[in-house]
Amino acid sequence: MSEGGYLIHNQHSIHFITFAVVQWVDVFTRKIYSDIIIDSLKFCQENKGLKIHAWCLMSNHIHLIISTDEKNKLSDVLRDFKKFTSVKIIKEIENSTTESRKNWMIWIFKKAGEANNRNKEYQFWQQDNHPIELDSEEIFNSKINYLHYNPVKVGLVKEEKDYLLSSGIDYFGDEEGLLKIDFV
Rank of each mutant, 00 (worst) to 15 (best):
M1K: 07
G4A: 01
L7W: 10
H9M: 13
H9T: 15
N10M: 07
H12E: 07
V21F: 04
W24P: 11
D26E: 12
F28G: 02
T29Q: 12
D35I: 11
D39K: 15
K42M: 14
F43M: 08
F43D: 06
Q45R: 12
Q45N: 14
E46Y: 10
K48D: 12
I52Y: 02
H53C: 10
W55G: 01
W55R: 11
C56A: 10
C56I: 03
L57A: 10
S59D: 13
S67R: 09
S67Y: 10
T68C: 07
D69Y: 14
L74N: 02
S75L: 02
D76G: 14
D80Y: 12
K82Y: 07
K82S: 11
K88R: 15
I90Q: 07
I90A: 04
E94Y: 03
T97H: 12
T98V: 13
E99N: 15
R101T: 11
R101K: 14
F109N: 03
F109Y: 10
K110V: 04
K111P: 00
K111R: 13
A112G: 04
N117M: 13
N117R: 15
Q123A: 09
D128W: 03
D128S: 08
H130V: 04
H130M: 01
L134W: 06
L134V: 05
S142L: 04
K143M: 04
Y146V: 05
Y146F: 03
L147P: 01
N150V: 00
N150R: 03
P151M: 03
V154Q: 03
V157L: 05
E159G: 06
E160Q: 09
G168E: 02
I169G: 00
D170F: 01
D174W: 12
E175F: 04
E175S: 14
L179D: 04
L179N: 00
K180G: 11
K180N: 08
I181L: 06
D182T: 12
